[in-house]
Amino acid sequence: METNHHAPLTSSEISVLWGFYTKNSLALCMMRYFLEKVEDPDIREVIQLALNHQQKDLSVAEEVYHSEQMAIPVGFTDEDVQPSAPRLFSDAFMLEYVRQLAVVSIATSGAAIPFVTRSDVTKVCHTVLQQGTELHEKAKETLLSKGLYNRPPSIPAPNHVDFVEKQSFLAGFLRERRPLSAVEISHIFMNAQTNGMGKALMMGFAQAAKDTKVKKFFVRGKEIAHKHMEIFHSLLVEEDLPSPKSWEDQITDSTVSPFSDKLMTFHTTTLIDSGIGNYGLATAASPRRDLGADYGRLMLEVAQMAKDGANLMIDNGWLEQPPPSPDREELEKP
Results as ranks from 00 to 15, higher is better:
Val164Met: 05
Ala310Leu: 09
Pro158Asp: 07
Ser90His: 05
Ala85Leu: 08
Ile272Phe: 02
Ser260Val: 02
His136Ser: 11
Gly204Val: 08
Gln321Lys: 12
Trp318Lys: 02
Arg220Phe: 13
Leu26Arg: 03
Pro242Gly: 10
Ser145His: 09
Ser67Phe: 04
Gly277Lys: 06
Asn4Ser: 09
Ala225Thr: 15
Ser84Asn: 12
Tyr279Glu: 00
Glu320Gly: 02
Ala284Phe: 07
Gly196Gln: 12
Leu135Met: 03
Met1Thr: 10
Lys37Gly: 00
Asp249Glu: 15
Met30Asp: 04
Val103Thr: 11
Tyr295Val: 00
Ser257Lys: 08
Met30Ile: 14
Lys333Gln: 12
Asn316Met: 04
Ile43Gly: 01
Leu9Gln: 01
Lys166Val: 12
Arg297Glu: 11
Thr122Gln: 07
His226Ser: 15
Met70Thr: 01
Lys123Trp: 07
Phe89Ser: 05
Ser84Arg: 12
Asp253Arg: 13
Asp327Ala: 12
Phe89Gln: 05
Thr265Phe: 01
Phe163Met: 10
His187Gly: 10
Thr117Met: 11
Val60Gln: 05
Ala102Trp: 01
Lys262Phe: 03
Ser181Leu: 09
Ala285Pro: 14
Phe218Arg: 02
Val103Glu: 09
Thr77Ser: 12
Gly19Val: 00
Phe163Trp: 08
His6Trp: 13
Val256Gly: 07
Leu300Lys: 15
Ser246Pro: 11
Ser260Ile: 01
Thr265Asn: 00
Pro287Tyr: 11
Lys215Trp: 12
Tyr21Ala: 02
Ser286Asn: 03
Asp261Arg: 00
Asn150Cys: 14
Gln130Cys: 10
Asp249Phe: 15
Ile276Asp: 00
Val124Gly: 00
His187Tyr: 15
Asn150Leu: 13
Glu329Asp: 10
Ser234Trp: 03
Thr212Phe: 09
Val128Ser: 02
Glu62Arg: 07
Ala208Met: 12
Leu312Lys: 01
Gly204Cys: 09
Arg178Val: 12
Thr269Asp: 00
Leu331Asn: 02
Met197Arg: 04
Cys125Pro: 02
Met202Pro: 05
Glu223Gln: 15
Glu141Ile: 13
Leu144Glu: 14
Met202Arg: 06
Ala225Cys: 15
Arg177Leu: 02
Tyr149Pro: 01
His187Pro: 09
Leu281Pro: 06
Asp40Lys: 03
Trp247Pro: 00
Glu141Phe: 07
Arg288Val: 00
Gly221Phe: 12
Glu329Trp: 11
Leu129Val: 02
His233Ile: 10
Val104Ile: 10
Gln69Val: 10
Gln130Val: 06
Met264Cys: 13
Tyr21Arg: 05
Ala157Asn: 13
Thr283Leu: 13
Pro244Phe: 07
Phe115His: 09
Gln130Leu: 11
Trp18Asn: 00
Pro258Asp: 08
Leu331Glu: 06
Lys216His: 15
Ser181Ile: 06
Asp327Leu: 09
Glu332Gly: 08
Phe232Ala: 06
Lys166Leu: 11
Asp42Val: 06
Ser246Trp: 12
Asn191Gln: 04
Arg297His: 14
Pro73Arg: 01
Ser154Pro: 06
Thr108Asp: 05
Asp42Lys: 11
Val237Asp: 15
Gln54Tyr: 04
Glu45Pro: 03
Lys307His: 12
Glu248Thr: 13
Met31Gly: 08
Ser119Leu: 10
Asp308Arg: 11
Ser12Arg: 04
Gln250Arg: 13
Ala310Gly: 00
Thr283Lys: 11
Ser59Leu: 06
Glu141Trp: 10
Ala107Arg: 09
Val256Lys: 09
Lys199Thr: 05
Ala7Gly: 08
Ile185Glu: 03
Asp273Gly: 08
